[in-house]
Design a protein around this nucleic acid. Structure first.
Lengths: 177, 177
DNA sequence: CTCAGTAGGTTCATTCACCGAACCCACTCA
DNA sequence: TGAGTGGGTTCGGTGAATGAACCTACTGAG
């Protein structure tokens, strides 16, 4: 975000956080990582982001320790980007932001619902499970289900893969859909 | 944020939310509103934001229904900007974002702590009160206290006023400090 | 009555980030 | 040999952010 160099806003954890994840597209890249997207081309197709911007964002997020670049194949060399623990800790933020968008922006149908996989209850604003009383349901235990606001027949393969219920963070193989 | 006009990202509550509060400075304006800042000049001095950008952001947030413009004096005409219910609903997002910044960005000392005013317990990672078991403590019931990371003798009057413990959303009279 | 001060802006030139398209390279498969 | 794919980089054009200057009501002091 680069709020200038000298900024007084630095005196605040929120401002510090926004320096890392506040730039355009950045939080959407992180969101996709929760959805299981890991490869450059999948981010590219799903987000519709300019290639140069995506490369910059992936590099910045990797340097900030939110994502980690991991080689998953040697020949030809191919890398994937996965969330670190620090990145996974952004789940409550994304959850509350998405819920706010759903509830407070007019004309927004529920796109996806997020339920506690063990009991099937929809998560609350802080990512808690109202049924179990489990306060911090980790993203690994969250199942994402498509909602009525989604296009039933999207263009890109990633969106198609996301039409079926799936656990967060589970890698998405866009090839075999 | 304006993710293009045609963006596929529209299929997502998070992207919709970011359209409203994802631009540079916007979330910091909202944060200041939670801290009790209401007037143009107070935002200006506390954030160090360019005047033109602040005017644009206040107008956009007002149109989006996050803030409401309210005349508090007729002669000379003076307006203040206060959070609407929709704006107050951003509290979980800000809370989780600030906590992430504190815990996951190196070199970030706790700037402020947020405690449940009724019992004095610091809020947990999900905005809950660990002592009372109250899951969604509303911002009105949250007391903000200065932490060790803050400059003890800041320049601007708003930062000085924020050095004393105070309830969130309580208006800040920067004059009588 | 005049003058300085204040709240809340608008205008302007410059800089910087985003954008889309084109290009590049290493590797694989037919 | 040639097309295809993954993962980028480079480049010119556009739009937004920046800081400084300017503007308009209005008030209060002398």
């Amino acid at each position: 975000m680069a709020l200038g160099k000298d900024y007084a806003a630095q005196q605040c954890s929120i401002a510090r956080a926004l320096e890392v994840i506040g730039e355009r597209w950045t939080l959407l890249v992180v969101r996709d990582a929760f959805y299981g997207v890991r490869r450059y081309n999948d981010f590219l197709g799903h987000l519709g982001i300019p290639r140069a911007v995506l490369a910059t964002r992936l590099q910045a997020l990797t340097e900030a320790g939110v994502l980690a670049k991991r080689r998953y194949q040697e020949s030809p060399p191919r890398d994937e980007y996965v969330l670190t623990d620090s990145g996974k800790a952004l789940w409550p933020t994304l959850r509350s932001l998405g819920l706010w968008g759903r509830d407070h922006i007019e004309g927004t149908l529920p796109m996806r619902t997020f339920v506690h996989a063990e009991c099937g209850t929809e998560l609350g604003a802080f990512g808690q499970c109202p049924a179990c009383g489990n306060i911090g349901v980790p993203p690994e235990d969250v199942e994402m289900r498509p909602g009525p606001g989604l296009d039933p027949d999207p263009e890109d393969p990633v969106s198609r893969a996301l039409l079926t219920p799936r656990r967060l963070l589970r890698p998405l193989d866009s090839d075999r859909v």
